[in-house]
Amino acid sequence: MTENTLKEKINMNGNNSIEIDCAPNGKPLNYKILNEEIHQVINSGYKKIILNKVCGQRFIGASLQGDLEFVINGVPGNDLGIFMDGPKIIVNDNCEDQAGNTMNNGTIIIHGDGGDVIGLSARGGKIYVKKDVGYRVGIHIKEYERKHPVIIIGGTARDFLGEYMAGGLVIILGLKILPDGKITENDYPICGNELGTGIHRGKIILRTNEDLQSKLGVGAKLFKPDEDDLKHIEPYLKEFCEIFSIPYKIITQKPFKVVKPISKRPFGGSYCGQIV
């Protein structure tokens, strides 16, 4: 892409911010072209990038580092923020699958529904989703030293929530946030089956009255939240409420349940190392 054609598609807003039309003449850009444009504007020194008319383009924000902010108007495609290390992405719509895949650091805020497999293997950062999400959310997120991934879902989740979890925090609030801003309790179950199956570190917190015992996966155990748990989640919840304009007192109207691993080594006893 030459510099001239690039300039035609982008609007400079001054103060380090720039807009990119992702569907010029109504035709969505190929993801490779769009991501190349994003790299070019970053190299030119822009810090805030507003992407308009995004329509399923994949890998937005892939492996980007540093103090960048993206505002996405439209629906971004799979693997939003994959391998990302630091930037903030705000999606003003729904989002396709695997947002925050293997993310090292950064923030993804989705003002709509998320997809499946959110935060796959993420090692750090935050992913906040206003509405509902699909299957295998928070799978294999892991913590390391000061890195501690946090995923908060305003609505509900499906099966295999927090599968193989190796650290970090997943919170499901079970709210329903209507387009007019009214907030009610979500009618759907808070999560599906195989909750936390294979979890060996970290915790999953669910705001619900449901009996979750029958949904628990292998190696997961239900607890009542203790003071440390509540203290741990409070700052994240307050931040979540502020972002999505949810009165914090609504959150406290229902009790929390906590899913934690029974062991750091859930499958340690399944094997036999005898010489044969």
Partner: peptide
């Protein structure tokens, strides 16, 4: 990963259930 924790690699990649998904990770 934290010290002393099992390092478990899931059996499949949970973002790859098909050739199309594999192509997606290659592209990523």
């Amino acid at each position: 990963i934290p010290k002393g924790s099992d390092a478990l690699s899931p059996y499949p990649h949970h973002d790859i259930y098909s050739i199309e998904d594999l192509a997606q990770l290659i592209s990523a």
